[in-house]
Design a protein around this nucleic acid. Structure first.
Lengths: 248, 248
DNA sequence: AATTAATCATACATCTTACAAATTTAATTT
DNA sequence: AAATTAAATTTGTAAGATGTATGATTAATT
């Protein structure tokens, strides 16, 4: 039977409706990044709404990174950057991170990073090489007991490689995953004394292969590195599951 | 010279400050998903701010997917889902999509999808198989001239495989990339008459390898599929660059 | 007694008005 | 012409009032 009446009015709130309309013109590139939108007053007039509703809509768009609101100046369209993509994934992984997710992260890295190292070996610039060797020195010189710092340096090493691929989508994908490394490391590697020396060794080998533009070598070196890391993770995870409680 | 005094008060707006405080308690899991936050009135009292400022903060959190505001009911913490991660990346790719980005997308798919097919062959369930064969039938039966629909079916095929990996991070990463396929396809494949038949062939081969739990076979079949697709893309992109203008 | 309708309290949604603070623009002075 | 000052513009915050949805309670009807 066909319904006699359909719902009156929009289910969504006014501000959500406004968001959609403004988002549409941005997505359709009718206003470009750095360009100014009409003032609040004008927008109110155009949409026929109060400033309250309009401002709530603007704050939503601003929270998602589509616009910037500058007091006394106006409303500007943002150049939607990778930061706005990475942050939600970061939050997601942070909220979901538990024993299982650590293993998922390790699995994903094992799947993708060798291929990334491969491409990096082909596309790396001289500048990438410099960054990598500076990073390696830092890792060698870092205090052996500062797990968090080592995790950060480790993360940067892998990030430099991801950026060396010269494909902007790759850092987008892997940055949030690498971002977890310092936190995971502080749990997993807390007791592994040899971890630092080992990491330096593996990084050195990877760096050499990338320097020599040897894709297959870089691929294999990265596999070796990650397999070693995975073994550590699994051993210590099963040995000390209790520690994971500290995460939350 | 070091400044004697730093600015008084926070540079950021009141609402942004409120966002940080509420976000903190959610990140620290002091309130769990589905739990209710205090009412607007109480939050105003607690923070010592007006409803205007508070509501703008709430709308920001709601726009990012951290909370839901239900009229007449209250404010609830969300179960931060993968949808909130995928959407920003979707937007990013949509805004950046141009000739270069299409090639980046193809490259990323070539890098990661064979490995994904490999893992899917190992972890796939019977249900995954069913979904894949249903999808294949749909592709066979779809009208030959409806490029967009074919793109959607194609996308779903690859999404099913990504989900078959049983690693929740993988769909997170690849969904936004696959989401572009219908749009890209409508540009690239518009003139390729044989595209549909070819796609059916390749999909069939991949499906068989996954069915037989043959990781190496699935890997190779996926490589073949993507290399063919890449050739199409490049040929037609260089032949008809003008068409890209239609994107914006 | 059970079901349905009416009522009320609660909570979010929107509007209006007012003022504060930052920025930009114009005017003025040096 | 440059620097300073004043004015206008624009966003930030506040407070109060009205509108609308939700859920619980009470009254009425069957």
């Amino acid at each position: 039977m066909p319904a006699l009446f359909s719902k009156i009015g929009n289910q969504q709130t006014l501000s959500q409706e406004i968001v959609q309309k403004i988002e549409a013109v941005i997505r359709q590139k009718k206003v470009l990044p750095a360009e100014k939108l009409p003032t609040e007053k004008e927008l109110c007039r155009m949409f026929g709404v109060s400033r309250t509703a309009l401002r709530e809509a603007l704050q939503m768009l601003s929270a998602r990174g589509l616009i910037s609101i500058r007091k006394g100046s106006g409303i500007y369209v943002n150049d939607y950057s990778s930061a706005h993509v990475i942050e939600p994934m970061n939050l997601f992984l942070e909220l979901k991170l538990d024993r299982d997710y650590i293993l998922y992260v390790v699995e994903v890295r094992k799947m993708f990073e060798p291929t990334i190292a491969q491409l990096a070996a082909l596309n790396r610039s001289e500048d990438d090489l410099r960054k990598l060797s500076v990073n390696l020195q830092k890792l060698q010189q870092s205090p052996p007991d500062d797990c968090v710092k080592q995790g950060q340096i480790d993360r940067d090493f892998h990030l430099i490689i991801a950026n060396a691929c010269r494909n902007p989508i790759i850092p987008l994908i892997v940055t949030p995953i690498f971002q977890l490394m310092p936190r995971i490391r502080s749990i997993v590697y807390a007791n592994v004394k040899t971890a630092q020396r080992e990491a330096v060794d593996y990084h050195q080998r990877i760096l050499m292969k990338i320097r020599d533009r040897d894709p297959e070598g870089a691929y294999q070196a990265m596999i070796a590195h990650l397999q070693r890391a995975e073994r550590h993770s699994k051993e210590i995870l099963s040995a000390a599951d209790l520690k994971l409680q500290e995460l939350s």
